[in-house]
Amino acid sequence: MNRYITVEIESDILKYLGEWKTGKYGKKLTWGIISKSFGYSRQALSGNKVIKEAYNDVITTLKDTTSEIDILADIAKENKKLKKEITDANALIHEYEQKYIRWQENAMAKGISVEALNKPIDPTIKEQLRKRTQEN
């Protein structure tokens, strides 16, 4: 292996970095990965201005892009959370329905009609005073 990075090796490394930029190999690129792939040290690779600029460009692109898999995973997680909320809400509604039926039966057993239970509550003294002051 050559001790120095030649133009041909540089173009191979740039091509490799271009493939990384598309997300073909994942989202985590390090100098160590490039070093293992081409047999040059991190210092030699980062010392080459063209390779360093391409590397930084790839890193920026990988950080900025969110893959479709990540988006779908987030949607699936949100969907699961919403389904749980719906299940919990339906259980609470069922609980309140059962409580209403129980109260209705107990009231009828005590001789209180449903109409009497549904009768509106008389306004409090404060509410009556507010209403009078608003009318004046």
Rank of each mutant, 00 (worst) to 15 (best):
R3N: 12
R3H: 09
I5Q: 04
Y16A: 03
G18R: 04
G18C: 04
K21F: 00
T22K: 11
T22E: 10
G23H: 04
G23P: 02
G23R: 04
G26I: 04
G26Y: 05
W31P: 00
G32C: 02
G32F: 07
K36Q: 10
F38I: 02
R42T: 08
Q43R: 14
A44G: 03
K49P: 07
I51W: 06
I51Q: 03
A54F: 01
N56P: 01
T60S: 13
L62G: 02
S67G: 08
S67A: 06
D70T: 09
I71T: 11
I71A: 09
L72A: 06
L72C: 05
D74M: 12
D74R: 15
A76H: 13
E78A: 08
E78W: 00
E78D: 13
K80G: 00
L82W: 04
K84L: 11
I86K: 14
T87C: 09
N90C: 07
A91V: 08
I93N: 06
E95C: 08
Y96L: 15
E97C: 03
W103S: 04
Q104M: 12
E115G: 03
P120I: 09
I121C: 07
I125A: 13
E127A: 12
Q128S: 07
L129R: 11
L129V: 10
K131P: 02
T133M: 14
E135M: 08
N136H: 11
